[in-house]
Every structure is written in C-alpha cells, then in structure tokens.
Write a protein that binds this DNA or RNA. Structure first.
Ligand SMILES: [Zn+2]
Ligand SMILES: [Zn+2]
Length: 751
DNA sequence: TCATGTTAGGCG
DNA sequence: GCCTAACATGAC
C-alpha cells in the first residue's frame, strides 16, 4: 500500500485528534484538502473533512480503513480557513472537527452534495448547431413544441450561453432543456461566473469631501499599510461618522479587486445598516450572514464569498469563519460587544479571531467603538494597535447634554423624578420623541407575597419566575419550566400576591395617562418578537412626531431613532455592582451608548440618568461622556489586581446534578493541577495561580449545579502552555460522566 | 446461571 | 460522543 493514498480526516466529535483513512487510486486523483468524505467510524458512518493529504500514518497501516465515499471534488473549505480553525481549536481547547463543522453551513454537515445546478450554463451544441443554421434545426422540432423553439432561439442570441437559473426565470422548464439536450441541439456545463470588476462611483470626489479631516486622516492611515497586517482601533463617539470611515476603507479595497469582511453585533444588523452599505457601495455585491437565515441562504452566502461573487460580507460572530478568495480588510463594529464571544461549545472570540485572521491574510483590521473594550484600549496604549480617533461630530452636531438626577432622596412619581417629568413634557411639546429606558426587571415582573415575602421561584434553577400576561403564566427563562400563575401564596396561602418590578409597569401606565394624546410604543421582547415586527414598529415610529418609546436598554442598541431628542434612563444602577469584574466596564459602555441615541439630527440631545449614586466616579464620568477617564481608571484597577487585560484567565466549569459531587470533582481537579505545578512548571507559566471552586452566577440551572475554577497567568502564551500541559489531567478526569467539564478561555462572562 | 447494571477505553 | 467488552452485582 502506498503511503500517498492516506488522508487525515477531522470528524464532528468532541475529540481533538484526527483519524487516518485510505483512498482508492481513483479517489486519490480527485481528493483535495477541505473536501468532505464519508467514513466508517466504529460501527457508524460519519461525514468528515480532509485536513491533510498523504500524511505519515499515525497508527499501524494495516488498521487504517478505506473511506466509504469522497463527497466533494472541490473543497468546501479553503486551506487557509482550515489552518485558522486548527489554530482556533487549539487555542480554545476545542475539537478540530467540531470547530470546522460549526463554521460550515449546516447542509454541509450532513453530507449534502454541492449544488452545481446554480452554475449550469446552457448553449447551442456548436459547431453542429449555430445561429446561422438555426432554421434547419428549428424545423426538426415538433410543430406544437413552441417553447422548445423559443428556447433554442433565445440561446442562439447569446454568444456564451445562459445560466439555467436565468432560463428558468424566463419561464423555461427543465424538461424542455433535457429534451433539446437529448436531440443533441444544446449542451450544458458548469461555469462559475467571473467576478465583475468593481467600479468606483463617479461621485467619488464628493464623498471624500463629505468626510471631515479626522475621518480622512483615519481612512488614510488605515489604507496606508495596504497589504500588510495592522490592527487599528477606531475610537469615535456616537455620530462621529465611524461608518463613513469603514465604507471609505472598504471601497478602497473593492476598487483593487479585494473583498471585505464586516462584523456587527446581531442587534445592529438591521435593514437600515444594509441599506446604508448598499447605498454607499451600489456596485458591490453585498451578502449577509446572521442567525435567522435558513440553510439555503447560508449555503448561498458561503458560496458567494468563496467564489468572490460577493465582495462584501456583513455578518455576526460566525461570519468571521467565512471563506474568501481575496480578503482585503476586516472591520469589527462595536468591537467591545460581548456577543462576539461564543458562549457554548466552541467558545471563540470573533474579535480575537478576526485579528488573527488579518495577520494571516496580511491585511488591516479595524476595530471600531465609541467605548472600546479595555483589551483593545490597552492594546492601543501599548501601540500594538494604531489608534485612530474621531472627536468631532460632523456637521457641527452637538454632543448630548447629560444630567444625573439622584433619586436616593427625591420624591418619585411612578419611578420618575419631578425634573425628569418636566423635561419629558417639554420635549414632547416641541414635537420631539422621548426614549424611556427601564431596566430588564421591569419587563420581567416576578410574583411575590406581600404578607410573608414569598417569591415565585423556578423549581429547577436558582432564579425567579417571570410573569407573562399572555396565558397568565409564570415562566423561567433559564430552562423551559412553565406553570400557571397561582392565586394564593404557596407559603402562607393568603391571596396577597403582587407583581414585583411593577414600578416600571407603573411608569408606563403613568406616561400613558399623563400624555393620552401622545402615541406610546413599547419595545420589548414580549411585544416585539421577530425581526419583522421590529421593522414595522420602527417605520411606524419614524412616521410619528411627538412620541414616547419605552423599552429596555438592550433593545435600543440596534436602531437609531432620528426624532428622539431626550433619553431617560429610569434606574441606571442595575449592573453597576456585581461579582463580575467587567461589570463597571459594561455598565459604562451601555450608558454611553444609550446616551448617543439622543439628538443625532439637527436638535441637540438631552440625556437624563436617574441614579442612587450620582456621586459615584463612574457616573460622574458618564455624565461628561468621558469614556477615556473611565477606561484609564478601570485599567489602573485591573492592573493593580492583575486582572485581564493585565493577565490571562481561563475558567474551568463543572456542572452536574449532584451539588457536592460537582464541587468535589472541581476541587480534585484543582488539587491535581496544583500538584502538577512543580517549580519547573511554575517558571514556565510565570507563576500561574488557581482559585475556586466558586458557585457560578446562576448556581443551579435546569437542575444542574454549576461551579468554576479560575486559572490565571501573566500572559496568554503562558496560559496556552499551562493548558496544554494540564489537558491530560483533564482528559483523565471523567470519573463521573454525570458531571460535565468545560473550558472557557478568555471568558467575558462568569457562570 | 442468567440477566442486568456500571465503567474504562477505543474509535483510524 | 457513542459503542462495547469486561467486569460487578444480584436475584433465583
Ligand atoms: Zn428554570
Ligand atoms: Zn405569603
């Protein structure tokens, strides 16, 4: 047996290793890296991906089985992506196969063949059939087969054939094509379309003029290093025109025949965003990737990028693993957004992957935010990233004026202070819109007993049940537990039940009552579920003048409402104090972002933040919209406590049905890791430390108890060394299959 | 003795 | 992850 007939295959199972298989002579000719194979594995059959050709066998050659089938003759994933995912799976301690298959569009996981019909082109069977002798052949067709004649005539008018898709959209049927093929009048073949060269718009000069000096400078800087790697942090307050900078940079690369990858948080991927991109780049083929897409849409988007039929991809987290033929630049909008970190399975951080990817492609990567993550902030400070700053708001638009209103002592009416109400009133009177943010709890009221203090809790989680008007039910949003709401207290059996968190309900009712003629829109997940509903609502709001918009802070992130001049944050303090060391950073980012919603148009905006801690340094800085101060202060604190980005951490999570078993298992793991940390290793990992086990933020979820250990090293490379040395310890540690152990490298959330 | 439950190891 | 061989337990 020739060693050249072997391949290494990655399989979609949680094992880090790859497996060897052999190919037949015939398969060997067609096999390529990144093609799928169906293989025998134990007593089942799996779809795998070829990740190495003619490798050195890693087991005795006689034990290597032949594959069952070679599915693809051309790769479904290019080599550079395989390499990127190989690196990522190693960094995040995940299985290569699982990482590869989670990046691929779902239909590829099931061995579905590549659909080539999309690119099937039909033409006259030249030289036998030509436009000149067409009449001879037409007369051979049955008299009543008008469609066939029409089809033949249509094809004769095209010099290089017509795609089957176009023919079908003209009303021709597959059967007609087949009949003509049988008569040897026409032929078909697969032709991947040529890329159409991108044409710069005629008005390109005027676009440059529309940019202010800062923007021009940012663009210039980002494209100066053209085809070498450089990360840029584009720091610009809301409304400073980051998007224009992105678009200008993208166009620069499109003109040169390159593709661009744009990552956005799910919530920001709205039709308005897409329209804006398409309007600025009218000749560019733009494709989208998000979680709401179906299989065929995903497949098509993947294909378009892989074949360079699309030049711009705008997508959420997983778009970072799309294939590109000629990637010119990567943009990450709202780079601080924690939704870039995958929270289960293959726990990668799309922002970090994007930077790595840019390095591999020798291209620039632009991280944009009004409120950068401390990680990127420090990278810029240490000159690892180039800092590009936008301070001005173009068109002399003023910054919103932010006011803190202390509600610790002030009398409140339905949660609103007097001055707040006055402001709302005056903005409405001027025909402007007011955005009122309530905290999450207000939209998830809990049932409680006023007599004994009993609170309706989930039987399966350490969480309160939330009341839903629809169906009069209590629901847990950590598991799928649901029960009809009781009329009596489960503890003292009195009928003294009340909905807590109703303060916000009161706020809404109060606003409705006080301004009966002003339309009030409620924007929350209960009343606005699908993306489509949100769009309808958005356009309704655009059509109104004075209006009240009531919603959670999160939901306001995506859309920009141009008529809003006042933003009210009813109870800001939620999330300021938490066990999570990133709480303050996230809190500031959210509030500053939310403040940016006020008055982007002609009107200067006003922001009112109601708080019980108006003297807190962070809130003071927020009121000055001084994120630099916050970032500097927080960075200093993190440095003192050697927390990221001044160290690297990894969480080892454990979850199991038995509380003490789960705890003990983690304790044993910690012990074993500590014993393994001899002096030699200590030096290797720069004095790594381990702490815990601690209960997770949600200690019990769906009847499983959750704890975590935290590993800490001074740097990420040291963490990588440590992790690879303890992975054997971890692998051996499965004395209890009821307890699941998982690793979270560079976590952004605890629990 | 059979029948069922539990666990470590291999899968190429 | 899942399958199975090997071993353990237990009822008759
Ligand atoms: Zn629950
Ligand atoms: Zn009670």
């Amino acid at each position: 047996m020739q060693p050249t007939q072997l391949i290494k295959v990655a399989l979609p199972i949680p094992l880090k290793q790859t497996f060897d298989y052999q190919l037949s002579e015939k398969e060997l000719e067609k096999a390529t890296l990144g093609a799928r194979v169906k293989v025998p594995f134990g007593n089942r059959q799996l779809i795998g991906l070829i990740v190495e050709l003619s490798p050195r066998p890693s087991i005795d050659i006689t034990r290597i089985k032949p594959i069952i089938e070679l599915i693809d003759e051309s790769p479904v994933m290019p080599e550079h992506l395989i390499l990127l995912l190989r690196w990522a799976s190693k960094y995040y301690q995940a299985s290569l196969g699982e990482a590869l298959f989670s990046a691929l569009p779902p239909p590829f996981r099931h061995g579905k063949a590549l659909k080539q019909e999309k690119y099937r082109k039909w033409q006259l069977n030249t030289p036998d059939v030509t436009a000149e002798n067409l009449n001879v052949h037409l007369s051979q067709i049955r008299k009543n087969a008008e469609k066939q004649k029409e089809l033949l005539t249509t094809l004769s008018q095209s010099s290089d054939g017509i795609y089957e898709q176009s023919l079908r959209s003209m009303g021709f049927k597959l059967q007609q094509l087949k009949t003509l093929k049988q008569k040897k009048l026409i032929t078909d073949n697969n032709v991947i379309p040529e890329i159409e060269a991108y044409k710069r718009r005629d008005s390109d000069d005027s676009d440059q003029l529309l940019l202010n000096d800062e923007q021009k400078q940012a663009v210039q800087s980002a494209i100066s290093g053209e085809h070498c790697f450089q990360a840029y942090l584009l720091k610009g307050i809301t409304g400073s025109g980051k998007t224009e900078v992105y678009l200008e940079i993208i166009e620069h690369f499109l003109v040169q025949g390159y593709q661009a990858l744009v990552l956005v948080p799910e919530i920001n991927l709205t039709p308005q965003t897409l329209l804006r991109f398409q309007a600025r780049l009218p000749d560019a083929k733009l494709v989208v990737h998000h979680s709401g897409m179906n299989n065929s849409e995903r497949l098509e988007a993947w294909h378009f990028c892989q074949t360079h039929r699309a030049s711009v991809l705008i997508g959420t987290r997983s778009a970072v693993f799309y294939p590109f033929k000629k990637l010119g630049c990567i943009i990450i909008d709202e780079e601080h957004d924690t939704s870039y970190k995958q929270q289960d399975g293959f726990r990668y951080h799309a922002r970090d992957i994007a930077v790595k990817r840019a390095k591999e492609h020798n291209c620039p990567v632009i991280l944009g935010s009004a409120t950068p993550s401390l990680e990127s902030y420090i990278n810029a400070r240490e000159k690892k990233y180039k800092l590009l700053t936008l301070n001005e708001r173009p068109g002399s638009i003023q910054l919103p004026q932010v006011e803190l209103i202390d509600i610790q002592t002030r009398p409140l009416q339905a949660g609103l202070a007097r001055p707040t109400i006055k402001s709302i009133e005056s903005h409405l009177k001027n025909g402007h819109q007011v955005l009122v943010f309530l905290n999450r709890r207000g939209f998830a009221p809990t049932l409680t007993c006023t007599e004994c203090g009993w609170i309706a809790k989930c039987n399966h989680c350490d969480a309160r049940l939330t009341y839903h008007n629809k169906g009069h039910v209590l629901r847990c949003h950590h598991c799928n537990y649901q029960t009809s709401a009781p009329n009596h207290c489960q503890d003292c059996h009195q009928s003294t039940l009340k909905l807590l968190g109703q303060g916000t309900q009161q706020t809404e009712a109060f606003l409705e009552q006080t301004y009966p003629d002003t339309p009030l829109f409620r924007i929350d997940r209960d009343s606005v579920s699908g993306k489509h509903q949100m769009e309808t609502l958005y356009h309704q709001i655009l059509a109104e003048d004075a209006a009240l918009l009531v919603g959670t802070q999160m939901l306001a992130k995506g859309h920009h409402f141009p008529k809003v001049t006042l933003v009210v944050v009813v109870a800001a303090d939620d999330g300021l104090f938490s066990a999570d060391f990133r709480a303050e950073e996230k809190f500031s980012q959210l509030l500053i972002q939310v403040s940016g919603r006020a008055g982007r148009a002609q009107q200067p905006g006003q922001v009112i933040i109601q708080t019980r801690h108006s003297h807190h340094a962070i809130l003071q800085a927020i009121s000055r919209l001084d994120y630099d101060h916050i970032a500097t202060t927080l960075a200093h604190e993190r440095e003192l406590m050697t927390l990221p980005p001044f160290s690297a951490i990894t969480n080892i999570r454990g979850e199991g049905k038995n509380e003490s078993d789960t705890f003990t298992l983690l304790q044993n793991i910690a012990e074993k890791i500590t014993t393994g940390l001899d002096t030699k290793q200590q030096r290797l990992v720069g004095g790594g430390s381990i702490s815990g086990p601690l209960p997770s933020l949600l200690p019990r979820k769906a009847d499983r108890y959750r704890f975590y250990l935290t590993l800490k090293t001074p740097t990420k490379p040291q963490m990588q060394k440590w992790l690879s040395s303890i992975q054997t310890i971890l692998a051996d540690f499965t004395p209890n299959p009821q307890i699941r152990i998982s690793l979270d490298i560079d976590p952004v959330e605890i629990g």
